[in-house]
Design a protein around this nucleic acid. Structure first.
Lengths: 125, 125, 125, 125
DNA sequence: GTGGTCTAGACCACA
DNA sequence: GTGGTCTAGACCACC
């Protein structure tokens, strides 16, 4: 998996790494139980501080998307289906980004088309 | 329009204000040419400093969502339809949030339903 | 002479009026001794407060570009040739605007061409 | 690079700082990728508040003249050549300042000489 | 170390 | 009335 990191972006580097792993899992480029590169390895590859990668991995573990296996290092966790509706903060964030898109005068149909385009790129269960 | 601000959130207050105005416009609670409360008024109402509100308004002006009329104060701008596809950063953000939702094992149909639910809440042109 | 005023611009209205009169004189649309509309007349025409026009006229008088004639109202002053080099603040402002243009990666030739284009639009003595 | 700031001028301090950096870049005193003093450092040096410098830097970032690298601080951006003619507002500002100079009865040749003098002071690509 | 955010209160310019 | 600017000092996030 390739990472594209910008050190000049206003988005913290650790979050860029975390975000790209999230998208990688959603797209099936990273599969459950698949092993990730070690902190040092990835830090070298991207050219950032170990702490930065460590922080990204830790957040992903907290979120339940990664797990640490004593023998194998860090790997992708199994999806745990969440009962009920979307967590409120995800729902809010989705509302916000859709609102921003709407304010660029993109109409509803176009937005739905973009959403479907993105979703078809994701893995099937 | 009501504002719900958390001073303990890690999200800067000025951004919370800015986000809620964006959603307010998208939902039609704030209509083009409608006047917003003055910087001082809103700052008092929410209980924050003038500069915090000022920063939120300024960002919204930079983004083209608000306009300040020297005679009348600050009001909602007209939408300017943007030709072409979604700006890449909005598309990326949309991808990211959909990926996060997908990782909660929500299936595609449920996601599309949520999107439609949000979109029907927005104003019609 | 026509005025184009924006009440939503970040530039104060009185300055927009003042600036357009300056350009009008430079282009010869307003000639020495020519009478300007009265404060009230212009204020009505543009749709702004009398005070705003008054402030513009007063600044122009202070700068020596307009003079008040008791019988005829406000009219355009004669140019008074200034000995020596440019006043330092005008030189600085010229430097600044040329720097901004340069920073848009416009090359020297193009800038000189624009300057000549503007200058040929001005009146000849 | 030296800054000359007047705290009594009617021009906001943050704008004086911003303007001098723009001119500094145009003159080649500040070169692409060159690092600027930190917000605190410059604020101390000039004797103003951090936020004042921060505002100047932020505006320059918005304008694309500076870039903040999370690892290295703030540096001068690469020039991005803009295709096409001058942006209308820059053209208007250039017209205005030339008109003001013309109204001081400076003749066309003298103005062109000043412009060339300023331009030769700028960096060569 | 870096920049980002925020406060409480002040003064100014504009209309 | 409106928004814009500024201070002095604080705390936080990031690297």
């Amino acid at each position: 998996m390739l990472f594209e990191i910008s050190t000049t972006s206003e988005i913290p580097i650790y979050k860029q790494v975390r975000d790209q792993i999230v998208i990688g899992i959603a797209k099936g480029q990273l599969k459950p139980d698949e092993q990730l590169p070690s902190v040092r390895q990835l830090a070298d590859e991207i050219g950032v501080n170990n702490m930065t990668i460590s922080k990204a991995y830790n957040q992903l573990k907290d979120e339940g998307f990664l797990i640490t296996d004593r023998r194998l290092g860090t790997k992708v966790a199994q999806l745990k289906p969440q009962p009920g509706p979307l967590p409120p903060d995800l729902f809010f964030q989705l509302t916000l980004i859709l609102a921003e898109i709407r304010l660029h005068a993109v109409n509803t149909e176009q937005i739905e088309k973009s959403v479907q385009q993105i979703l078809t790129d994701f893995f099937e269960e």
